[in-house]
Simulated scan of single mutants.
Amino acid sequence: MFALAYCRSIAISWIPDDQISIKQTLNEIIQSDIELSPLIKDLDYLFKACNQYLAQNYQQANNELQNISDSGSSLLLRAEVLRMQLLVSLMLNMNTNHVRKYVKLLSYLLEELEIEEPEQWAQCSFALFSTYTNKLGEFDKGEEMAFKLLNFIDKQGNRPFFNYMRNIMYRKSFLFRSALMSKRNILDSVEYFEAADDYVQYYFSLCNYGGISIVLNELDEAMLHLERCLQLVSEHDYIEFLQ
């Protein structure tokens, strides 16, 4: 739970002070519970791997992950380590056989995660969806995973984490829906992330909405949203947007 909370926090928080505060809080909790002490080294390796990954130091992230013990770990920790190993392998390996190894290992955990850890199941399913569509070119499997994930999310009620995941999927709906159908989904994600002041995801959503508008030959609408992307970069120069 602690590893997941930290890794998720640094993935979605763009304010460095927030990340430091979260890690300090988690360290205090871990150090105050003697039952958690055997996990301290593995959690520290995972924390470092997450930070190295976000800094685009993928080999260093991989080195940290290789230090983590695979014995005696909780289901949640094992799943998060495998998810990170898959994400890092996507950036390091042109050889898809290596990527497929982590896809296979992570897929084995999904059934167990769905029952015991629904949030981590959603995170891992999203990682697999992204792998199928972005790396392996297996769009049928990606589409199947996308609809399974969205159906699962719909069953979770109005829970903030799943609302967030739904809109992440909407932002990427052009990968598994027609241009016309995905346009409505992407607009939903634009509105959601704008209201949430999540500038990074808002930026990505605007880019995708602009792109899908070009595909539909709606060029004025595309320009309007792409210009807003440029405004965001100018207004929030402390955030490292992808160029």
Rank of each mutant, 00 (worst) to 15 (best):
K141V: 11
S130T: 08
L149A: 08
N158H: 09
K148V: 04
D154S: 12
L128E: 03
Q120D: 03
N158T: 14
D154L: 14
S130A: 12
L136P: 01
F129Y: 02
D154M: 13
N134C: 06
E138D: 06
M145I: 11
N151E: 15
T131I: 04
D140R: 15
T131A: 09
G137F: 09
D154R: 13
K155P: 14
E116C: 10
A146L: 14
N163G: 13
L136T: 04
N167C: 13
Q120E: 03
A122D: 00
N167V: 08
F139P: 07
S130D: 09
E143D: 14
E119D: 01
N151P: 12
M169P: 04
F162D: 09
Q123A: 07
F162S: 06
I153E: 05
Y132Q: 03
F126D: 07
F161Y: 13
L128W: 00
E117R: 01
G157K: 04
T133L: 10
N151H: 15
W121H: 00
T133W: 12
R171A: 11
I153S: 07
F147V: 01
G137L: 07
D140W: 13
A127W: 00
Q156C: 14
E119V: 13
W121Y: 01
W121K: 00
F147H: 13
D140G: 10
R166M: 13
G137N: 08
S125K: 00
E119C: 01
F152W: 14
K172R: 12
G137K: 02
I153C: 08
E143G: 12
D140V: 12
L136Q: 02
